[in-house]
Design a binder for these strands. Structure first.
Lengths: 335, 335
DNA sequence: ATCGTTATCGGGAACGTTACCAAAAAGGCA
DNA sequence: TGCCTTTTTGGTAACGTTCCCGATAACGAT
């Protein structure tokens, strides 16, 4: 069964396509009787305008694209839910892509999205993304862009992030106040923006309490499943830390598992706090202290910014970076 | 900066659009010199064919649509990864949508996908989906369809599921063999296909060991965050079970949390086993026994079936349902 | 009666691409 | 030389929709 088109309606009712088109969109210059005729027939035949034809003509699609490294990550899936909540309300569809931490995939996704004429793009950069030319490219093409969480200083656009500095500062401070001095920081590759902000927060807290910064306690960890385990084993062996502060969802889990696998008591031997949105933190053994990013709010805010620029097309409105506070949840793992 | 089109190339090189088009696709009937000329110019100008125009013309898009209830669910995000792995290899893009357990959203997503001329659809039904007319509709339109996990008997199509019966049977049997007799089964709304299969597995195991089935021990649980908690509290109070077997990712966590909140010892007072793909099961307190669905394999298999039917267009090939075995992971929670 | 308005509709082009049908030039063969 | 192939290219319609420009008729005003 083929979909019915405006032409079919025109033929059936002995009208021109222009008339049908105008009747369907309720134009004032169409006789009420004809209008009713057309609308009823369209309804009866279950007519739906062909969005592809629309996109070709209008160069837009009433859809926005989202690119995240991995949806199997609480932070990102919650952020997407925030995005969808806003987009749905405002009549936009959300097209979700994963970069799988690959720069090539990210490029390919971007290509696909602009090719499909999305009205705007929300992106959180992959762990391998070192250049932002592909983003500048779509900006040159006039596609509105908002970068969130994994941002970059090289791209000039609206951005939304959590207050990573503050979150890391509070996590570190808490560990210090509970008596720890050798606090290991397990974090993502150093080229991620969030990595540096969190590292700065960590350093600032150490400085505040006159604990010298020891770079041997900081470990950058790749995205392979076994990476965290090896890093943790190594840092435990060689540095004998009395606390661990991890910088991401993924690292929190993998590190936590590694520490336990090593038979080390949390928090007696090593206190543990994670920068993570894991919903199960309170059910772990021991319950895990966390710095939680407001993922839903970040997604919501980013989507709102994007849709505002799409709809207002205020091309030269000053770009801004919105920073949203994190939450601290202290549990047994860091007592 | 506007995207360059075939027309621009034609004008620049003083050729017709047909010639350019054929040169770009390497047609044999174009002079090699012209071909080279066109290809080089296209390369230089960074030409990319407009996929929207292509879709309008060809009625296809080299993209498949995926609809799942919720991506913030390990099972579904892993399944999506399986789907993407296959699709990417075979040159298809994957467009991900969430129904958020809403029938209306599911319909809307389907509409959008067929409107955008995806070449096929993979779907796992929402918790509110009681009719499958929207699926039959797209089948009438000739869009290939594969249903996975949350399937329905009302729709005739290729399907991929885990062996829910077997998984539930093994979970229940294990609880029985470890000495439990009053085994509560916390499950999803009864209209889900998986719910019934798992329930049957549960019943079969009881029957095998001559334990009478008591429907008071079976509880159907909605999708609201507080639902599981109340159900668990109630069943603990009134039925005094000595074991709990939960039927989904979400229920495992919520129920586990509720039991612990009630101060009940696992597994001493109540043994616990979940039908879940939680990656953190082994880190919980106590480590959680699970029946794991082969999510990645399910996604992979479903995508392969879909792409095969898309590409072969063997319209009247017999539909089949592929069933993939589950895995049992026994841990402390059910000892 | 003529003219300008208004209400209502149709025709065609355009968005970017491909496919079909020609057409022109060049070459081969009797 | 005349005709038939082959090679290479151009023109145009079509996909579904909207928009611009006209066209027609009715109607009141002059």
């Amino acid at each position: 069964m083929e979909a019915i088109t405006i032409k079919d309606i025109a033929k059936a009712l002995n009208l021109s396509t222009s008339t049908v088109s105008r009747a369907l969109r309720g134009s004032y210059e169409i006789n009420n009787e004809t209008k009713k005729l057309v609308l009823e027939y369209a309804e009866k035949m279950n007519y739906h305008p062909n969005p592809i034809a629309l996109s070709l003509k209008e160069n837009r699609s009433k859809a926005i694209g989202v690119i995240v490294p991995e949806i199997a990550n609480n932070f990102f899936s919650q952020a997407i839910n925030g995005i969808e909540a806003v987009a749905y309300d405002r009549g936009y569809h959300v097209v979700i892509f994963q970069s799988h931490e690959s720069y090539e995939r990210e490029r390919s996704n971007i290509q696909h999205l602009v090719g499909r004429k999305v009205d705007g793009v929300l992106i959180s950069l992959s762990g391998q993304t070192t250049t932002v030319e592909h983003l500048q490219e779509i900006q040159k093409r006039g596609v509105p862009l908002v970068v969130f969480d994994r941002i970059s200083n090289d791209i000039i656009s609206n951005k939304v992030i959590a207050d990573n500095f503050q979150g890391a500062y509070e996590a570190t401070e808490h560990l210090i106040l509970s008596g720890r001095k050798r606090i290991a920081h397990i974090t993502s590759p150093s080229l991620l923006y969030t990595t540096n902000e969190r590292l700065e927060g960590y350093k600032a807290a150490l400085a505040k309490y006159n604990i010298p910064f020891d770079e041997n306690l900081v470990r950058y960890c790749g995205f392979e499943p076994e990476d965290a385990k090896q890093v943790i084993f190594e840092v435990l062996e060689t540095q004998k830390p009395d606390a661990i502060f991890t910088a991401s969802d993924r690292l929190a889990l993998d590190s936590f598992a590694a520490v336990k696998a090593k038979g080390i008591q949390i928090p007696e031997q090593v206190a543990f706090i994670g920068f993570t949105n894991l919903g199960v933190a309170h059910l772990l053994d021991p319950p895990l202290s966390t710095i939680v990013q407001p993922a839903f709010a970040i997604g919501k805010t980013a989507a709102e910014m994007l849709l505002d620029t799409i709809e207002n097309k205020q091309s030269n409105a000053a770009v801004k970076t919105i920073k949203i506070p994190t939450e601290v949840n202290l549990r047994t793992s860091s007592e």
